[in-house]
Amino acid sequence: MYEPKIIAYACTYCSYPGADLAGTSRIKYSPNVNIIRVLCSGRVSAELILRTFREGADGVLVLGCHFGDCHFINGNHRTAKRVPILQRILEFSGIEPERLRLEWISASEGERFAHVVDEFTDTVQQLPPMRQVLG
C-alpha cells in the first residue's frame, strides 16, 4: 500500500473555511491531502489540473461552494461543467477518472470535508501511483 499524494483546490469562501472548521473541530482526516487555496473553484482550469497530475499528484480534489453560495455568483457553475468533461477526457486517454473529484463543501461542513478527503484517499489508494502511470 502506498501513500497517495492528493492535492485539494479549495475555494477561499466556502471550502477552505470548511477545511478550517474540520481542523478547529479536531476532526481527524487523512494526512495525504495538501490543500491549495484558490479564489474560486472556477479558477481551477483544466490546465492546472493536468499540470498537477503531471507533477506527480495521484489525485486532485476540486472543492467549491454549493450552487447559489458562490461569491462570484456562478463561478462554480463553470467548474461543474468543466470537471465532468475533463474526467471524460482523462478516461478516454487512459487515466482513471476517479483520480479527479469535484465536491461542494460549505464553510459549515467541516465533517463533510473530512469525510470527502478520507473517502477520496481510499479511492485513490486502490489505483496505481501516478508516477507509474506517467512513467
Binding site: A46, E47, L50, R51, F53, R54, R82, I85, L86, I89, L90, S93, I95, L134
Partner: peptide
C-alpha cells in the same frame, strides 16, 4: 504556448499536458 502549462524545449511534450489541454479546449 504558455510556459506554465507546456514546457519549452521538451519534445515530445510530456503526457498529459499538451494533447489533453488541446482536447479540453476543443471540447
Amino acid at each position: 504556448e504558455e510556459e506554465l502549462w507546456v514546457e519549452r524545449g521538451r519534445v515530445p511534450p510530456p503526457f498529459p499536458s499538451f494533447h489533453l489541454i488541446r482536447a479540453m479546449h476543443t471540447a
